[in-house]
């Protein structure tokens, strides 16, 4: 909505634009500082101004962050951890999205007595503090022989992502006309045929939202990563924290910042490319429709 009738004066407009631009600058400062620092030499950082552009830009810190920075006892940069995160995030997103789609379908189009309580329990599971399941999960991963492995993290992320993916698909399929389902049933189509032929082809928007939401959450996860993995098996966020928190040797702020930007890049790219859907995902997660 907007107050079109109260014609704002020119002065008002200037103040509004001014405020908006000042805030935009404030929000951009940390990203700018990260980027600027990541292209500076250590000498320039020590003597310099954090808000200044690099005088002699260098990509050396990026190369070091990617390939040779020391994390723990190994000095091979963050590339291995970056791939760990990729190997974790891809299967976890695909599996949790697929299950969420099926669950949402059942919970809207094949309702059974008690479907509401089933959904309620799955919904509350989205919001629990994960501290309340960490200790049992660590025990179970150990007993399954997948502690400190990517497979273990995939399992954890699938399980604790199910609530949200189910929520997204349930809300989307809820608005899908039941008549189409009924007429397909008249034609003899079964449970899976209806899902495959009728619902799935029109699910592209919600699949995009769910995939983006899950990708962002799982890529950015730290708690599960730090609890259930260590050493060379850690995901990107854990490696970044270890790199930045390490206190041995010379503190290479430029390398830290390059690593931070690398850790942020996948989700930032998704945000820039598909911001609209990203937003919808956040809102759907926040405001249950």
């Amino acid at each position: 909505m907007s107050l079109s009738a109260t014609a704002p004066t020119r002065m008002n407009r200037i103040v509004i634009y001014g405020l908006l631009l000042i805030f935009a600058a404030v929000y951009l400062v940390p990203l700018f500082v990260m980027l600027a620092t990541s292209f500076k030499t250590l000498d320039e950082i020590r003597g310099g101004n954090i808000l200044a552009l690099p005088a002699q830009p260098t990509i050396e810190p990026w190369a070091r962050a990617w390939g040779s920075a020391c994390i723990g006892v190994t000095c091979e940069g963050i590339k291995g951890y970056f791939w760990n995160s990729i190997k974790m995030v891809v299967p976890a997103v695909l599996i949790s999205t697929a299950l969420g789609a099926l669950n949402g379908y059942v919970l809207t189009k094949w309702r059974f007595p008690g479907h509401r309580i089933v959904f309620g329990l799955m919904l509350f599971a989205c919001f629990i503090p994960f501290q309340s399941v960490l200790i049992p999960m660590a025990r179970v991963l150990g007993q399954l022989g997948i502690s400190n492995s990517t497979a273990g993290l995939v399992m954890v992320h699938v399980i604790y992502g199910l609530g949200f993916t189910t929520l997204f698909f349930r809300n989307y399929y809820d608005a899908f006309p039941d008549e189409l389902i009924h007429s397909a049933q008249m034609d003899g189509a079964g449970f899976l045929t209806i899902f495959w032929r009728i619902l799935l082809p029109s699910s592209a928007p919600i699949i995009v939202v769910t995939v983006i939401y899950q990708f962002t959450n799982i890529w950015n996860d730290f708690l599960f990563g730090v609890s259930f993995s260590s050493g060379a098996n850690a995901p990107m966020t854990v490696a970044l924290n270890n790199l930045v928190a390490s206190s041995t040797g010379v503190k290479e702020y430029n390398v830290d910042m390059a690593a931070a930007v690398i850790a942020a890049l996948p989700t930032l790219i998704v945000y820039v490319v598909a911001g609209r859907y990203f937003m919808r995902g956040l809102m759907a997660g926040a405001v249950k429709g």
Partner: peptide, 29 residues
């Protein structure tokens, strides 16, 4: 403007913490 106010939400908290730790560093920030 909207994407500028919103992009921090795409970052992981570890990245946010790292960036602000550096920015608020009393000696060099």
């Amino acid at each position: 403007l909207r994407p500028i106010y919103l992009y921090p939400m795409a970052l992981s908290f570890v990245v946010t913490g790292t960036a602000w730790k550096w920015f608020l560093n009393p000696g060099m920030g």
